[in-house]
Design a protein around this nucleic acid. Structure first.
Lengths: 177, 177
DNA sequence: GCCTATGGTTCAATGATTGAACTTAGTTTA
DNA sequence: TAAACTAAGTTCAATCATTGAACCATAGGC
């Protein structure tokens, strides 16, 4: 049985020590290829060779990304055939919860980076049958969220470290707004 | 007056030729640092030196990212002082529309990559006063969007190219679902 | 004149990405 | 039973990007 070698998925500067959940999310999927890999897994492209063919990603890099995504709990490796032992990749629950975010980013691209010919892929919301136009709203009041109805505040885990040093100062100044 | 040099913000493999709006979004902000730069700009960290201090990013790399983000129409460079000519950076409308998406990604990190101590930064939805829990919903029916009520379909710009070669085949097979 | 502040640029060293060739294991075809 | 085929990786050299430190330029204050 073939084993993934112990490549340690080294990244450039790590964001792991930045006390910010965005930094931690990016630590997991913030690299150049991971979001497209997740898109493909969601769209049904699940085998190593299919991912290489679809994305044109280098095989060794795909191996490293898949290992990293698996270690991050976003992707699961499962056998689809035992006699010639073969594996394919699937999204875990954490990975599936990234799908709406990727879809929202796709909609942003439709709006601001659209090609002349129109969107290449569209989504239908099967609950209502409409072509999907995602909105990001508040779970409490259902109002749309935008840059100007959002106030950042230091949370329980706040501290002044790399990635929040200057922010901590700024938030301290506006916390009582 | 000091000018930004014409660095051409070369990236690794470009996603520009992939017919997918997600790929085009990632072409603009899919690198390692851009999302954190956008977060800082949103949170009020707007000067070159502040960004360097807050993020610990290399100065030359920050220059390149800011140039690329400006060229992508996500960031605007504006003078805040003329006599010693000094500039700061602000989000454009396109950049501001990324904020809810970054917030959603932050919430994902809170849920799946939370530190022991709790979230370092929280957001309050000022329209209702609650601590923000973002939801991604359908604009038509207001129902929540998830991986299992979404059906991908070939759009008007669909074609089989790098990044959609295999997907195009798969979608052709399920288009009539 | 010299020091400081701010916003960059330059450059050498290091680390990541690319692309092609190779390996492994089992299965089918001749 | 050997040769060819398939799928999933591994290995490696060349290239490209990132890092970190030192430098430069402009202007103001002392």
């Amino acid at each position: 049985m073939m084993q993934l070698s112990g490549v340690s998925a080294l990244e450039r500067t790590s964001f792991a020590d930045i006390p910010c959940s965005l930094a931690r999310s990016l630590e997991a999927i913030g690299d150049w290829w991971s979001p497209l890999i997740l898109r493909d897994l969601f769209l049904g492209v699940r085998r190593f060779g299919e991912l290489v063919e679809d994305l044109g990603i280098s095989r060794n890099l795909l191996t490293r990304r898949l290992v990293a995504l698996e270690e991050a709990g976003i992707v699961r490796r499962e056998p689809y055939e035992t006699r010639p032992p073969r594996y394919e990749y699937a999204l875990t629950e954490a990975g599936l919860e990234l799908v709406p975010i990727l879809v929202a980013l796709t909609a942003w691209g439709d709006r601001w980076k659209a090609p002349r010919k129109g969107a290449p892929i569209e989504f239908v919301h099967t609950d209502c049958g409409h072509r999907l136009r995602p909105r990001i709203v508040c779970a409490d009041c259902s109002g749309e969220i935008s840059h100007d109805n959002l106030r950042p505040m230091p949370g329980p885990g706040a501290r002044a470290a790399r990635g929040t040093k200057v922010i901590a100062r700024k938030l301290a100044g506006t916390a009582g707004l």
